[in-house]
Design a protein around this nucleic acid. Structure first.
Length: 245
DNA sequence: GCGACAG
DNA sequence: ATCTTGTCGC
């Protein structure tokens, strides 16, 4: 599988988003605990106050967690080809995130992405887009909704509350740790709400952010800091060993 | 026109 | 995405 083929302009992207939103995907049937779960993340230069611009450097990392806890990862850096435009995140981040994933020895069975899915002007945010493009069931995780609205959940781990756009439920708040800020969970490609909830809880036993996404974020920041180099990194054990990658 | 607006 | 500041908890 090769990288590329992303829309290169807003009109082209919107057309693709409308197409994806109109498709019906068969639900994924996998069992947590026996899958390779991935996370992918990109960070940008520190100290900038304005929204991202075309040409900004980005540092991306993907992480794959095996059932036995072993991990693999891949890091890549590059310039982003597009300004940040809400609703068009795929133009800015899609290509680099895909590159990071395709560098892994094998693709994940399930993927966490730092983006929305159905909570989107055309009901096809980057978490859905990336999963669809690579044919990997995907779950989006964000700090806040893009368009959806809904009350906050209770303060206990596992509590949820629906997020809707009009009458349509597009995602949900999920408290992953007692008394810590909830996350927005966006069921993406081939994932239903119940499975998304189970999966996020499975990967947040100890931390607020699902472990694959958390490790990918750590690695991308280490790459940005120059503490690790781009390309293959294998058998990392970053958890509890920050800076030891 | 003005503010909001995943990352 | 990123920064700042102060504050709380382990």
């Amino acid at each position: 599988m090769r990288a590329g083929g992303w829309p290169t302009g807003i009109e082209q992207l919107i057309q693709e988003q409308k197409r994806m939103a109109s498709l019906v995907f068969p639900p994924w049937e996998g069992s947590l605990g026996s899958i390779r779960c991935g996370g992918v993340f990109v960070c940008y230069e520190r100290g900038k106050r304005e929204a991202g611009k075309r040409g900004d450097w980005g540092w991306a990392a993907s992480v794959l967690i095996f059932p036995d806890g072993q991990t693999q990862s891949f890091c890549v850096e590059g310039r982003t080809p597009f300004d940040y435009v809400p609703g068009c995140l795929a133009l800015r981040e899609g290509p680099l995130l895909e590159e990071a994933l395709l560098g892994l020895g094998s693709l994940p069975d399930l993927l966490f992405v730092n983006a929305t899915a159905r909570d989107h002007p055309y009901r096809a945010g980057l978490a859905l887009h990336l999963g669809f493009k690579l044919d990997i069931p995907s779950i989006g995780i964000t700090r806040k909704p893009l368009l959806a609205e809904g009350a906050l959940p209770g303060n206990k781990r596992g509590e949820t509350s629906e997020l809707r756009i009009g009458n349509q439920t597009v995602g949900f708040w999920l408290r992953t740790q007692d008394n810590k800020a909830p996350l927005v969970v966006h069921p993406g490609y081939r994932i239903d709400f119940e499975k998304a909830k189970e999966t996020v809880l499975f990967y947040t036993e100890k931390y607020r952010t699902p472990q694959p996404l958390r490790l990918a974020r750590q690695l991308s920041r280490l790459l940005r800091a120059g503490m690790i180099r781009p390309s293959v990194l294998k058998d990392n054990d970053c958890d509890e060993k920050r800076g030891n990658c």
